[in-house]
């Protein structure tokens, strides 16, 4: 479904990605784990076309993405959340969510999806008339995830969805990830909470300084020495 082949991305003359290859098959949850600055977010940006790869190809269901603009890529069925919580601060919570469905042709299915988001995050329902900018940091995180869900993408890119959320919501978030995956959405998940990510994912890639150093079934990665020491903080 998604295929990155030998992708290198530069910022100026600095190579942030050094020949990354990864695939995501339909129906999968794939997680990408690594330290800060390893290139996880750059990988997501490259997929969405906000930065361009200098070498290699990105393709999605047979379309080459690395030559398309971001809004074309989104229309092919890829959505990202939370993009650094970039919600629309002067619009209400409801308007933010409705904008998430902006590119969808199936207008009649939007209302049930809105209901689904409100069921997942009751706090957003309470605050649906409030301006996005008045929400607390964690609530903005929920809104960003809710907005991405409203796009009902074929492929959802999640960039640290659990960041800044309370423990009970972290559990909820990962349950949601599994739920929407069962409903047919393919997911590429970037997470610092490697333990939780590897529990819900089918497969995982470990990225270090712009290179994939390890990829395997998620359960196998959970047992690997490298992952346990470097990313799970075990002695």
């Amino acid at each position: 479904m998604l295929d990155l082949a030998d992708v290198s991305t530069y910022y100026g003359n600095i190579r942030a990605l050094r020949g990354i290859s990864l695939t995501v098959a339909p129906g999968e949850i794939v997680t990408l784990i690594g330290t800060n600055g390893a290139g996880k977010t750059t990988t997501l940006r490259t997929i969405l076309g906000t930065v361009r790869p200098h070498r290699g190809t990105v393709s999605f269901n047979g379309h080459r993405l690395d030559t398309l603009t971001t809004n074309r890529i989104v229309r092919l069925g890829i959505a990202q959340s939370p993009e650094g919580r970039r919600i629309f601060p002067r619009m209400t919570v409801l308007e933010n969510l409705e904008l998430g469905a902006f590119v969808r042709p199936d207008r009649e299915a939007i209302a049930p999806d809105l209901e689904r988001v409100f069921t997942l995050f009751p706090r957003l329902r309470e605050r649906s008339a409030q301006k996005g900018g008045t929400l607390s940091g964690g609530e903005q995180q929920m809104l960003a995830i809710g907005r991405a869900l409203m796009a009902r993408p074929a492929l959802l890119l999640l960039d640290e969805p659990s960041m800044g959320l309370s423990p009970i919501l972290v559990d909820t978030i990962f349950r949601i990830v599994e739920d929407i995956n069962r409903q047919g959405t393919t997911i590429l998940l970037v997470e610092q909470n490697a333990r939780m990510a590897l529990r819900v994912a089918h497969r995982g890639y470990v990225i270090q300084t712009g290179r994939i150093v390890l990829h395997d079934a998620a359960a196998a990665l959970l047992r690997s020495d490298l992952v346990r020491k470097t990313y799970l903080g075990e002695k």
Partner: peptide, 13 residues
């Protein structure tokens, strides 16, 4: 205010 947000468990340690 949430100093370890976005850090992996090792960095949080």
């Amino acid at each position: 205010d949430e100093p370890s947000a976005g850090m992996n468990p090792r960095e949080a340690q």
